[in-house]
Design a protein around this nucleic acid. Structure first.
Lengths: 318, 318
DNA sequence: CGCCGGGCGGTTATCGCTAACAACCCCAGA
DNA sequence: TCTGGGGTTGTTAGCGATAACCGCCCGGCG
């Protein structure tokens, strides 16, 4: 017991005894067994974080926000990756819940029924992140992708573009990309327009795919005057391709991506994009789990962040 | 006990009983408590993976290799991030070891004394990855960064370049980058050359920094005929800058990076680089932990992979 | 001098599960 | 009929920590 008290800094122990304990612990290379500790105390300082991918660039940024916010709370994030599969998500969630974390941060609002049931019954704070277009289980922190797509459409139309093409991923499971496209189309329709052409890809180097798709879509529909990419990386590929092929950006063709990744800063021209508030999403979600949300609410908090349009140099000034 | 047997698929249970148990478990939304399970069985199906960063692009790829190899072993990776700080590494390691994982995969051979002691006494398989230039604790899987730098120097010299500059990160704790640079200089010296100039950066968008540094170093030393970048991302920035400024690559100036990231495939010209075998490193390390290393060795395995020079289009053909 | 209470350290029961073994049923073979 | 063994299910004793409580010692105070 005394050892336990010393190592946890809890309860009164005389300095002499504390000293001796620490010394012995060091000499023996003692590492306490958190498994036993957690079982006895019914407390686990872990936060389950479930995201679709690590190679997407977006999610490491969200993680950074989470880690930073949790830093001085004694809580620790544990990451699970689903590869955009809801079945995998269910498995990963089950696995993580079986370690009885203090909270769950999970990307997206779409889950299998079983996963939803687990989340509802877990009895711990749940924060669904990235997306607010739908019904959440407990708390939600994100942006409206539908509205993001819509706003982009409005900006593009306002700048005078009319023959607009879309380039994206072939991922039925990427609901946020889908919602963005839906919002985008809605925006076009509101102006009496519709998508002039589209092109999808799956797998491979996104930058390269961006080039290839751009070439393909422009070969097929040479009269396009705007290309909306579902993410910045393929947008960057498209931008490079256009510049190399002597296309006048943004006058002949305008371009826009989505996410606002750092990477873009180094491109020859700044791609128009929309910041997805990744870092802040992570931070706010972690704050909710840590019970430090400024609202003081316990559960059920909905935070909609506003993505900012960054017009860059690839949209004509209206 | 019977429930335990059903849910773990261990031991004989009649089909009728199994059915009933599964049904009840589903109805109750029962999620077994792994904490108690681990405590009782003294087995934890987790592998601690400790890496410096997630935003480096390299490490997510290593993780992919690890996940893939562990997929059907029942083991699960748990990631800890150190931000290139050995102190943080020690803390993270302590934290992870206190969950008694089945193995540890940790980047680098450099650790604090305390961390090294913990690893030595953990009584589980330890695999140090990325780097083989030094003494390992148990198993080691990686490449020789020193030799990688040296080989690159030889290739550059063989192609006829003589006034060579280096551009890298200002990171004393990034031992692998340091070793690469040391090997590189050694290679130059062997040919009676030395670095003509160098430039370092810290933080920010790597692509942008690559541009800025390239401009800075060429302004200061306009007679350089080769730029060696410590990673592909800054190399890509440099490449874009050179092309925009009408520099003839590779004739006027040659360029090379390091890592062989996918991203490069979409650039206007393929940057010379050296593949760091990231995926395979993850895979082989995980195989060792899973006890499936083809060698059949138990511990103490040293695997040196050979990075492949990819000359791309930014080194003159000799 | 006796009692009280704070400071300190120990005892006991428990957390939810599994290893090990015991118990039971049933049927085949002696 | 009795025995043995396979198939199935139950019992007991931990795993290594912590919560809650207990007890000792000592100094201060009435």
């Amino acid at each position: 017991m005394t050892v336990s008290r010393v190592l946890r800094n809890r309860g009164d122990v005389s300095d002499a005894t504390r000293e001796k304990v620490l010394e012995a612990a060091k000499a023996l290379g003692y590492v306490p067994n958190k498994i036993a500790g957690a079982l006895a105390s019914q407390r686990v300082n872990l936060v389950a974080v479930i995201i679709p991918s690590l190679s997407n660039l977006v999610f490491p940024e969200v993680l950074t926000g989470i880690s930073k916010e949790l830093e001085d709370t004694g809580l620790q994030p544990v990451v699970g990756v689903t590869n955009y599969s809801l079945e995998k998500e269910e498995t990963v969630l089950y696995e993580m819940l079986s370690w009885r974390p203090s909270g769950v941060i999970i990307a997206g609002l779409e889950h299998t029924d079983a996963a939803r049931a687990m989340l509802e019954n877990a009895g711990i704070p749940i924060v669904e992140i990235m997306d607010v277009d739908g019904k959440g289980i407990d708390s939600v922190v994100g942006i409206s992708h539908r509205r993001a797509g819509l706003k982009m459409a409005e900006a593009i139309i306002a700048a005078g573009y009319r023959r607009i093409g879309f380039l994206g991923t072939k991922m039925p499971e990427d609901h946020r990309a889908r919602k963005r496209l839906e919002g985008f189309k809605e925006g076009l329709e509101a102006a009496g327009l519709s998508l002039a052409d589209q092109e999808f890809y799956a797998g491979g180097s996104a930058l390269l795919k961006g080039r290839e798709m751009t070439e393909a879509i422009l070969r097929r529909s040479p009269d396009l005057d705007f290309l909306y990419y579902s993410n910045d990386m393929i947008g960057a590929g498209g931008l490079l391709w256009c510049l190399e092929n002597g296309i006048d950006v943004p006058n002949q063709i305008g371009l826009a991506g989505f996410n606002g990744v750092d990477l873009l800063e180094g491109l020859p021209r700044r791609l128009a994009t929309m910041d997805a508030c990744r870092r802040e999403i992570g931070q706010r979600a972690a704050a909710i789990i840590a019970g430090r949300s400024p609202s003081g609410l316990i559960g059920g908090e909905i935070i909609e962040l506003q993505p900012l349009l960054q017009p860059g140099d690839t949209i004509r000034k209206p």
